[in-house]
Amino acid sequence: MELVKRIEVLIEKYFAAETSMAEEQELRDYFSQTDLAPHLQEYQPMFVYFSSAQQESYGKTVSLKPGKKRYLAWISVAAMVAVVASVWMSNPFQPNNLGTYNDPEIAFQETQKALEYLSANLNIGIEEMSRLKEFEQTKNKILKNN
């Protein structure tokens, strides 16, 4: 009867995450027996499973190639630099065109030009993003195959 009381206390501590490794081993040992108190039998499958799961291991060796990650990181950095440089080179900032217009008609025409310019650059940016998505998909295929 004293053992059952101790096991009940240990179960309470176990569910409160306050047990030590030795106490958990005591619980596993108790529930591996066939003669259990009737009100504690509901916990037996859980502790039997934990005992068997503890013995499981992964037998295959995992080979890690340390230099490969560095190589892929530099490829992604180079791709980003290429994208930024191509967008900047195709449309460099022009500080001479900054100013105000006295004639509203000229201001309207210049605003239309600026919006067309912005639209064209957004379309180029969207195309570049689709290229990045293709690059990402290709990279994922390569990483999965190796």
Rank of each mutant, 00 (worst) to 15 (best):
I75W: 01
T61S: 14
V81K: 03
L64F: 10
F50Q: 13
P45R: 08
K65G: 00
I75V: 10
A73V: 13
L64Q: 08
P45W: 06
V83I: 14
A37W: 04
E56W: 08
P66W: 02
D35K: 15
R70H: 11
Y43E: 01
S76L: 07
T61M: 11
F50L: 14
M89K: 05
K60N: 09
W74L: 14
V48H: 05
A78L: 12
L40I: 09
M80N: 10
G59P: 03
S63K: 10
P38L: 09
P66G: 08
Q41W: 01
E42H: 01
K69P: 00
P45V: 05
I75N: 07
Y71H: 15
Q54S: 11
M80I: 12
K65P: 03
V62D: 05
A73E: 14
P66V: 09
L40T: 08
V48R: 14
G67R: 11
Q54E: 08
W88C: 00
E42R: 09
A37S: 14
L72H: 11
Q44E: 13
V81D: 03
F50D: 03
G59D: 15
V87N: 11
E56R: 13
A79R: 01
V62W: 01
M89W: 09
V81E: 01
K60Y: 08
L72I: 02
L64P: 00
P45C: 12
V81H: 02
W88P: 00
T61W: 04
Y49V: 03
V87M: 15
A78K: 00
P38I: 07
S57E: 04
T61R: 15
V48G: 02
Q55P: 02
S63C: 01
M46L: 14
Q55E: 14
K68Y: 03
L36F: 05
Q44N: 04
P45E: 05
F47L: 06
V84K: 02
L36P: 07
A53I: 02
P45S: 09
Y58N: 10
S63P: 00
V48A: 05
E56H: 11
A85R: 04
M80D: 06
G59K: 12
V83A: 12
I75Q: 14
Y49N: 10
I75F: 01
Q55M: 09
A37V: 04
